[in-house]
Nucleic acid binder design. Structure first.
Lengths: 341, 341
DNA sequence: GTCAAAAATGATAGCGCTGTCATAACTGAT
DNA sequence: ATCAGTTATGACAGCGCTATCATTTTTGAC
């Protein structure tokens, strides 16, 4: 209620508002003594700058937008937490903009948001990060954006991500080293970039050990637990079923576990199951799911960082930045050596 | 990039900027013809109002804040979607502010956010909605807020929620009508308001049928799947175990299913399980979980509504508004009549 | 037609900041 | 001391809107 303005601070400190502004914005050419005086006055008055005024007068809005369509809640949650944590440090705020990629007026919606809010930057998560209309709208408006785990045209704009191929490769290697030879693989949604990379990693690990998966052990899922369940049903009803199934995300792996439970197939004794993503649900089932943990929080924080430093400093680099973060293979209770050695 | 201002629209329409402003803000006293002219000019120019300017000049910021600590990602996701959907309709935007209720400087953080952003309203989810420091900061600043499912002091401020007691009551009734007499109940986190209400509903339904749960069938959980698992382990290892377990949220119910699976207890033939919340995970397990669906999306939308209409119009009512939404009992595959009839 | 009342429109002053440019205060070499 | 070359500070315009109040136009009763 008590609205303290920069003018009040200036009066209290006995300086001009411009000098106060300089201190608050960490601009150069301010004496240490002056700095102190301003800071103390601001503290005493509990001064809070008015974002609208800063935004209107200056070139920054201190607002970062997070555009997402519909990844899993857990994923989005991590992204938000990561982004906000970095925003907080720099006085930025996060506005969330769920985006319906199937909406016909998507482009004008996006244009509306970025020009109304004058966002300093936008974070794009899959699958929005691969939507041509969104990218075009952002580029046309000149709004900086960072894509998280984009599929297509990786060098079109700055991005952060992780090495899905290598993660799938290593998880598969783990399975093979446990002694598995017949390993089933459930692919993800074909429109999702990670889908192909994870499959590639799986195949590379198999090939490195001279293993060629049979066609019926390579199934097409949709990243939903239902699709994982259905693929598992098909694979598990055959007498020569795989001894391990690697589902390319946790939801599908959960479907596999559900199918195994239904068929009284003991996990991991009779069937090893691995997932990908390390969702909270992975430790909610029994047995706990072996999976790949993506550093989602860190990726989002890095994305934010890119946006904020870009907004603050001038650009000046040559090609778009790309930051690859480390994943982590987490072996829990759903994987073990196969029965028949 | 091409920044179209209200002045441009006014010039194009051959009117003053004030008249354009009136049309855009749906103020009265504008001829239909004038209205048309303004709207057409705005459309032709693809005019997008500048939120910062509107906020600085006027009394509204068009920003709603969502404060949350750490409910489940699925819950938060629904809240966000519900809130944003309503914000969109009214030209508002949502900024998210994760709040750490254990942080010592919580109060000044909250104060900083609301005065910097000049939020038109704030939505509080559990457990933030019961944090005294947050409530005090909001009240002191005079920022309108709506609490979702508050526990303490329900009439301290406007709120939306649902009737947890009656939902638990009805679910329990369903279980009893299936033929269950010995029903285990797993309580939630004691600090959470819903915990007591759900227990009350359970007990009332049991009492109505002359049933008194034995103390060892009334267990203390913490809303985590791990705690559900542990409670189930204790209940299921007894020879006279319950024929049904009602866990007061889905995560714990998932823990119960995990325990049953581990013990080769067939669900629902040998054990019925019911949850509460209808999280996505409820249909990720096998068998699919019977549960209570909270209208989270609608609650958040209603909360937003309250804030926006309050921001637009003057207040003028007497007591704080309270809106109770309808729940839905969803009976899926984890519940059935008991074996022994 | 006349006139007051009501409705529609416009001129103008800020909102609280930042950016630009001018001014003042310090340097240190001569 | 003197003067350029810095460095530190301040005056003031204006960002794009809304609010207030003045002005013009329309309306309806007589």
């Amino acid at each position: 209620m008590a609205t303290v303005t920069i003018t009040d601070v200036a009066a209290k400190a006995g300086l001009s508002i411009k000098t106060v502004s300089r201190v608050l914005n960490r601009e150069p050419n301010v004496t240490e003594k002056t700095r102190e005086k301003v800071l103390e006055a601001a503290r005493a008055l509990d001064y809070q700058p008015n974002l609208s005024a800063r935004s209107l007068a200056g070139s920054r809005s201190f607002l970062i937008g997070l555009f997402f369509d519909n990844p899993s809640p857990a994923y989005i949650n991590d992204v938000q937490l990561g982004a906000v944590s970095r925003c907080r440090e720099s006085g930025y705020h996060l506005t969330i903009e769920p985006v319906d990629t199937t909406a016909p007026d998507l482009e004008r919606t996006v244009r509306g948001v970025i020009s109304t809010l004058r966002l300093d930057g936008v974070i794009l998560t899959p699958p929005v990060c691969d939507d041509e209309r969104v990218l075009r709208a952002l580029e046309a408006h000149g709004t900086p954006f960072v894509r998280i785990a984009p599929d297509l045209q990786p060098d079109r704009a700055p991005r952060v991500g992780m090495d899905d191929e290598r993660a799938a490769f290593e998880m598969t290697l783990n399975l093979i080293e446990l002694g598995h030879r017949r390993i089933g693989f459930i692919k993800g949604h074909p429109d999702h970039g990670a889908t192909h990379l994870r499959l590639d990693g799986f195949l590379r690990a198999m090939a490195r050990h001279g293993l060629t998966p049979r066609p019926e052990d390579l199934m097409q899922g949709w990243f939903s637990s239902q699709s994982g369940f259905e693929c598992a049903e098909a694979m598990l009803e055959r007498p020569d079923r795989p001894t391990a199934i690697f589902a390319s995300n946790d939801d599908m792996a959960l479907g596999v576990i559900a199918s195994a439970n239904r068929r009284r197939i003991v996990v991991p004794d009779e069937l090893s199951i691995a997932g990908f993503d390390n969702t909270p649900a992975a430790v909610t089932v029994w047995p706990h799911l072996s999976t790949v943990a993506q550093p989602i929080f860190q990726m989002a924080a890095a994305a934010c960082d890119l946006l904020i430093s870009r907004a603050a400093n001038s650009p000046g680099q040559e090609g778009p930045t790309a930051r690859l973060m480390d994943f982590e293979i987490i072996m829990r209770d759903s994987t073990a050596a196969p029965d028949d050695g």
